[in-house]
């Protein structure tokens, strides 16, 4: 899952080092326009729904945080 997420991110903005970066939102690697692309890609790839309330810096500042969010939403969907 993590690798798939990195692939999606690199397609949206190749400028960041996604393995190490923990400030994707704070340092504007992901702006609000690219967030819409990212959410659409994640929803399609993992068959989840990401509500607006989940689109926060905490959930999107690093690949690990995004992975955690996706894992949680996949689990919630299975419930």
């Amino acid at each position: 899952m993590r690798d798939q997420i990195i692939e999606i991110l690199e397609d949206i903005n190749p400028d960041a080092d996604y393995e190490t970066c923990t400030t994707l939102i704070d340092d504007r690697y992901l702006d609000s326009l690219s967030m819409v692309s990212l959410v659409a890609e994640l929803e399609d790839t993992f068959d989840i729904t990401i509500p607006a309330v989940e689109v926060t810096a905490n959930n999107f500042n690093s690949v690990d945080a995004i992975t955690k969010l996706v894992e949680r939403l996949v689990e919630e969907d299975e419930d």
């Binding site: 397609d11 949206i12 609000s32 326009l33 819409v36 692309s37 659409a40 890609e41």
Partner: peptide, 12 residues
Amino acid sequence: NKYGPLLVSSIA
């Protein structure tokens, strides 16, 4: 994937 979301996000 790049221009599609961009076009739609213009509504928001």
